[in-house]
Amino acid sequence: MSTEPLIRMENLQHGYTMAGQRTLILQGISFTIDHGEFVAIIGPSGSGKSTLMNMIGCLDLPNEGNYLLDGQNVRKLSDNRLARIRNEKIGFIFQNFNLLPKLSAIENVELPLIYRGVSYRERKRNAEEALIKVGLQERMHHRPNQLSGGQQQRVAIARALAGQPPLLLADEPTGALDPKTGKEVMSMLQSLNAQGHTIILITHDLEIAEQAKRVIRIHDGQVAEDRRIEL
């Protein structure tokens, strides 16, 4: 692993102007996350953690400050370069899965590979491998509506894994699941972390956050707490 951290946030600031009123949502956030970490970002709603997640996921750019992902400053990148970074560096896992309903499980998993320009055969192989990894080898050709919530979230995890990005970014991954399935998803994330994947987990649930190895608590747009969890 390289010595440069995977994520370096330097005094990140971001705000919106609504009806002439400037609201600062992120008020100077700084932290670093190394390769192989399992970090939970926690905070109540309105704390700015969703905005922070958008920044980490390169879905939005900060007004001020620097964000280095895998050594690259994303601050001044064009839309197309950002799309490429999302494609290559980040695997998204959303609260409501965000699978495309008209595509089968394997077709959903293939999507990031299509946009990367991977050949048909290699794409199929990678997608199959990812689905096997999450234990869905039997359900590859099912549509999302033929799958349970837990299975859908596993498809989404397979999709995030398929492109082998250095970072998995999970936004409330258990939020739409019952406690038992939620637990399964969490243990899957833990085992992925054990295999070396870097995981950032966004949640408002302290109990979920405690299953990570490090918790960053956001409050009023600032880092209120950053602690490692001793096992």
Binding site: G57, L59, A83, R86, N98, L100, L111, Y115
Partner: peptide
């Protein structure tokens, strides 16, 4: 939105 998050360009 999903496609863009997964890396679709304009």
């Amino acid at each position: 939105g999903i496609r863009k998050a997964l890396g679709a360009k304009k």
